[in-house]
Lab assay of single mutants.
Amino acid sequence: SFNTVDEWLEAIKMGQYKESFANAGFTSFDVVSQMMMEDILRVGVTLAGHQKKILNSIQVMRAQMN
């Protein structure tokens, strides 16, 4: 498990989005775990492969939080 959203993004090789997530207010796992595709688009993730990777990881995160 990760301590910060930045660490999580690095771990899934999506570190290039750290600033975008932070600027959009997605700075805690409570918020990130609620993200939908529209949120991912809003933070500027436009590549389908990256969207899928982030969404898949969020689903895993949700499962671990319950």
Rank of each mutant, 00 (worst) to 15 (best):
K53M: 15
V31L: 15
Q34S: 09
T27G: 06
I54F: 05
M14S: 02
M36Q: 15
T46I: 13
A48V: 12
F21G: 00
Y17M: 01
N3V: 10
M14T: 01
V31Y: 07
A11L: 07
M61T: 03
L55G: 03
Q16R: 12
D30L: 13
M65D: 06
N23S: 12
S33G: 06
K52A: 14
E38L: 07
S1G: 12
A22T: 08
A11P: 00
H50Y: 03
L47Q: 12
T27N: 10
A11F: 14
Y17N: 01
K13I: 05
T46G: 05
Q34N: 12
Q64F: 09
A48S: 11
V31G: 07
N3R: 14
N66E: 15
M37L: 13
N56T: 13
H50S: 03
D30E: 14
K18I: 09
N66I: 15
Q59T: 09
M61P: 01
L41T: 08
D39C: 03
A48R: 12
A24S: 09
A11Y: 14
S1F: 14
G15L: 05
R62P: 03
M61F: 06
S57Y: 11
K52H: 11
T4Y: 06
N23G: 08
K52S: 11
D39P: 02
V31H: 09
S20P: 08
S28N: 12
M37A: 10
V45A: 03
S28F: 04
R42C: 07
G25M: 04
K18D: 02
W8G: 00
S1Q: 14
M65N: 07
K13N: 15
G49Q: 13
T46R: 10
S20D: 11
N23K: 14
L55N: 04
S57E: 15
F29Y: 04
M36V: 15
K18N: 04
I58F: 02
I40Y: 03
L47C: 11
E19W: 11
A11Q: 10
S1T: 14
T4E: 08
Q51C: 07
F2K: 05
E7M: 07
S20N: 15
A24F: 13
A22V: 08
I40T: 02
W8K: 00
Q16D: 06
Q34H: 10
I58V: 08
V43L: 12
H50T: 02
G15H: 08
T4M: 06
A22G: 06
A48F: 09
Q64I: 12
V45D: 01
T27C: 07
F2L: 08
V43W: 02
Q59C: 12
F21L: 03
F29M: 11
A48H: 12
L9S: 01
M35P: 00
E7C: 07
G49V: 14
M65F: 07
E7Y: 05
A24D: 04
